[in-house]
């Protein structure tokens, strides 16, 4: 997911798209596969997908932009998601998030200046009995306080 990766080639994109075409309703799996490979759904993929599925580019863009998960550009090297949902709010997640954003000098969805960490809100990780909850890339963390958050951010290189 490094920012400095070269742009994926048309061949690479076509291969990934083709690998999902046997599925019923392949569009979301295609987006996921592209994002797993490139850290985002590259703009150059949209016409390839449109062609493969026989739908318009506008439709492909419409679907992609509907979902919070899909990115037009890669995130930072690590993505830290902080839960904003009610159960975590009940144990102080709002204040934790506000202090974290302030410390990093970024807004929600922003990336630290060194490109290490992107901070995103998430609405429930299913860790509602051990909040405030967070997720660093795919690793879940419960009962996050300032000290734990500082450690997570340090490990992520923020």
């Amino acid at each position: 997911m490094s920012l400095s990766q070269p742009a994926p080639s048309a061949e690479e994109i076509r291969e990934i798209v083709a690998s999902q075409l046997h599925l019923e309703g392949p569009l979301l799996p295609i987006f996921h596969a592209l994002q797993d490979a490139f850290g985002c759904v590259p703009e150059g993929a949209l016409p390839v997908i449109a062609d493969a599925l026989n739908i318009t580019r506008a439709e492909v863009h419409g679907v992609m932009s509907f979902y919070h998960d899909f990115r037009e550009v890669p995130a930072g090297r690590h993505v830290v998601k902080i839960c904003r949902a009610e159960a975590c709010q009940a144990v102080g997640a709002d204040a934790l998030a506000a202090r974290t954003l302030e410390k990093l000098g970024t807004e929600w969805h922003g990336t630290t200046a060194n490109g290490a960490v992107t901070i995103e809100p998430v609405y429930c990780l299913g860790l509602c009995a051990c909040g405030p909850a967070a997720m660093v890339d795919n690793k879940v963390v419960g009962r996050v306080d300032d000290a734990k958050m500082a450690k997570l951010l340090a490990e992520a290189g923020a």
């Binding site: 949902a85 975590c88 609405y123 429930c124 299913g126 860790l127 509602c128």
Partner: peptide, 9 residues
Amino acid sequence: EGDSGTFAD
């Protein structure tokens, strides 16, 4: 299972 407070699923 997107509801906050639920994790049974």
